[in-house]
Amino acid sequence: MTACTPNSLLKGQLQIYQHKKGYRFSIDPLLLADHAQPRPGEHFVDLGTGCGVLALLLATQTPQIRVTAVELQSDLASLARNNVIANNLQHCIHIIEKDMRLLSQRDLGGPADGVIINPPYFKYHSGRLNPLNEKAAARHEITIDLPGWVLTARKLLKKSGRLYCIFPADRMAELLSTMANNRITPKYLRCVHSLAKNQARLILVEGRMEARHGLTVAPPLVLYKNPGEYSDEALRILWPENQLFFKSPVDSQNKNE
């Protein structure tokens, strides 16, 4: 059995186990969960759930939400199921072990209100490929690329349904054009900076299925006042105890390693 270690999130409301030597989430999914706006009673799909962190955050923060979390890798799908059980969220989170490219609305019991994804950031031949399969698939477009997951979202969303994602800022044009080509209109964009003086490294984006054009560019999210010192907004998102796990700006770029 793969060794696991626990993390406590949301002031102890969530206990999430991760593989000790596999891919370990950074603060990116916490930023994405805060960015998403599920409404009570909606059905969201978490594509590439990994250990289940996004699904668990959404289910804990939004009353009566239903989340279908999809994961291709068997070890991670099993870990996600165990995390759901450990947090007593079986009533609202369902784990599907499947290639997301093969998903249809039939697998979900109908169209989704929202799709959320923390996708691989790098193209397959870009940068150093991690020798560990979990980390490689999380960081590089090995099992699915940008056009693939945007197309998947299009197939699963209802009309006016929303797509929420986090992505590298230097691939912004590629992301927005791919969404538009799949009839998912970019509606909201926010740049994420480690420090105010630094260029944006990440973007948070919301798109709506078959919506009218009109993009809101929000004020930037700055994570640190100074190196190692979170901004007030970052503390609101991450909660103070998470400083025990994410101590430096490097941690917010975990997928870059």
Results as ranks from 00 to 15, higher is better:
Ala136Tyr: 02
Val115Phe: 06
Lys225Asn: 14
Gly110Thr: 04
Pro227Thr: 11
Thr5Leu: 11
Leu76Ala: 10
Thr60Ile: 01
Val250Cys: 00
Asn82Asp: 15
Met172Gly: 09
Lys98Asp: 05
Tyr224Lys: 07
Ala173Pro: 07
Val222Ile: 15
Leu163Thr: 04
Gly161Phe: 07
Met179Gln: 15
Pro38Arg: 04
Thr185Phe: 10
Pro63Gly: 11
Ile237Trp: 03
Thr185Asn: 09
Ala234Cys: 14
Gly127Met: 02
Arg162Cys: 12
Asp107Pro: 08
Gly22Cys: 00
Asn242Val: 07
Ala196Leu: 15
Ile142Arg: 09
Glu71Gln: 09
Tyr164Cys: 06
Gly12Glu: 10
Ala112Ile: 11
Phe245Ala: 11
Asp46Leu: 06
His213Met: 08
Lys135Thr: 13
Pro63Ala: 13
Pro40Gly: 03
Ala36Asn: 07
Ile96Glu: 07
Ala86Phe: 04
Glu71Gly: 05
Cys92Pro: 06
Pro227Asp: 12
Gly148Phe: 03
Ile96Ala: 02
Ser194Ile: 05
Gly41Tyr: 09
Asp113Glu: 11
Ser74Tyr: 11
Ala69Lys: 05
Leu103Ile: 00
Val53Gln: 02
Arg201Thr: 12
Ile237Thr: 04
His19Lys: 00
Gly41Ala: 06
Arg66Ala: 10
Ile203Ala: 11
Lys197Thr: 14
Met172Tyr: 10
Ile85Ser: 11
Ala55Pro: 10
Arg139Leu: 01
Ile117Gly: 01
Arg101Asp: 05
Pro168Cys: 02
Asp113Phe: 08
Leu10Asp: 04
Asn254His: 07
Ser74Lys: 15
Leu76Cys: 10
Leu202Trp: 03
Phe246Pro: 09
Arg39Gln: 13
Ile142Met: 14
Gln199Cys: 11
Ala196His: 14
